[in-house]
Simulated assay, not measured.
Amino acid sequence: MPIDAAKALAAEPRTGEIAWTAKDVLLYHLGIGAGLPATDPDELRYTLESRLHVLPSFATVAGSGAPGVISGLSMPGVEVDLARVLHGGQTLQVHRPIPATGTATATSRIAGVYDKGTAAILVLRTEVADPQGPLWTNDAQIFLRAEGGFGGDRGPSTRLDPPAGEPERTVERTVREDQALLYRLSGDWNPLHADPEFAKVAGFERPILHGLCTYGMTLKAVVDTLLGGDVTRVRAYATRFAGVVYPGETLRIRMWRQEGAVRVAVSSVERDDAPVLADTVVEHT
């Protein structure tokens, strides 16, 4: 059987040292579209090392650059075809601001294996701490097409009621044609995002953008638009990947301010507002 839920959940956590530099942070920020306009003081916070503020979503690539999807597939009890793999969702808890340069210990384990019938979902949890204490916790929900039906727990629902009323702010962000090629340099080398032939085998007309790139672009839009550009206000950030994005498209990002949080919905302008990110919440101070 491709997935042995009991074996995956019982496996010993994997622990290793990770490190990152300001160069890694700068590359990540450029990969999610920072730097336009290049001389804008608000953008220089993301692109100039002497002023660098770390967007919390950098946590998804810090250190090895593996955002959980590929590394989760090498855990005990998991043996699947990479062409069937999609990133289903991502949850990030930020325990304190991420330094521009750092070393830390990352501990990863399979925290959940869920049977959705026609598909399976793995939850890969990664907890990161440095000598001063916890830094962040990442949960990557890995969607495995055609791997369900093994009789396991369906797991909790992540669906939220739609936010009420009109959004407080709506912004649009263009995805560059080469953005997936730049973003993958932060560590996610899945050929689905670069190789046209591989993308066709996986069922897509051409390479798609990394879900975590859309995730980062969206958080930056929320921080810049409703949080005064202050990255340290972000406490948690969760989303469900509801659809794909193709390089060259435009993201429409709708935001609703709530008590201590911002609800967000992201869609593709060119595909009649097809959903891209759903059930998205940014918790903040």
Rank of each mutant, 00 (worst) to 15 (best):
145 R>I: 10
121 I>E: 13
271 R>S: 10
18 I>D: 04
73 L>H: 02
179 Q>G: 08
2 P>Y: 14
265 A>M: 06
171 V>D: 08
54 V>Q: 04
65 G>Q: 11
5 A>C: 05
11 A>F: 00
175 V>K: 07
142 I>E: 11
216 G>D: 12
282 V>M: 13
91 T>W: 14
199 A>T: 09
24 D>M: 12
132 Q>M: 09
237 Y>M: 11
217 M>T: 14
175 V>G: 05
109 R>E: 10
65 G>C: 06
38 A>H: 12
214 T>W: 03
124 L>K: 10
124 L>H: 07
20 W>K: 03
14 R>E: 07
176 R>M: 09
111 A>W: 08
110 I>F: 11
28 Y>R: 11
258 Q>E: 15
58 F>L: 11
110 I>M: 04
170 T>D: 03
184 R>K: 15
250 T>R: 13
221 A>Q: 07
22 A>K: 15
187 G>R: 06
209 L>W: 06
248 G>C: 00
118 T>Q: 14
152 G>W: 04
135 L>P: 11
133 G>A: 09
145 R>V: 10
6 A>K: 14
231 V>I: 04
195 D>N: 12
102 G>M: 00
44 L>G: 01
278 A>I: 03
48 L>T: 02
210 H>A: 00
264 V>M: 05
254 R>F: 02
278 A>K: 00
276 V>W: 00
144 L>A: 04
130 D>N: 01
149 G>N: 12
111 A>N: 09
242 A>Y: 00
42 D>Q: 09
39 T>F: 14
87 H>T: 05
85 V>T: 12
184 R>P: 09
219 L>A: 02
200 K>R: 15
159 R>N: 05
200 K>M: 13
105 T>S: 08
126 T>H: 01
121 I>C: 09
182 L>N: 07
105 T>P: 01
38 A>G: 01
262 V>I: 15
27 L>E: 08
133 G>S: 13
124 L>E: 15
15 T>W: 00
7 K>G: 03
110 I>W: 12
283 E>Q: 14
232 T>S: 15
18 I>T: 08
133 G>C: 11
250 T>C: 11
194 A>L: 06
167 P>G: 06
4 D>Y: 07
132 Q>F: 02
108 S>C: 04
119 A>D: 11
194 A>N: 01
160 L>W: 01
281 V>M: 07
25 V>D: 01
6 A>P: 03
219 L>M: 14
50 S>T: 15
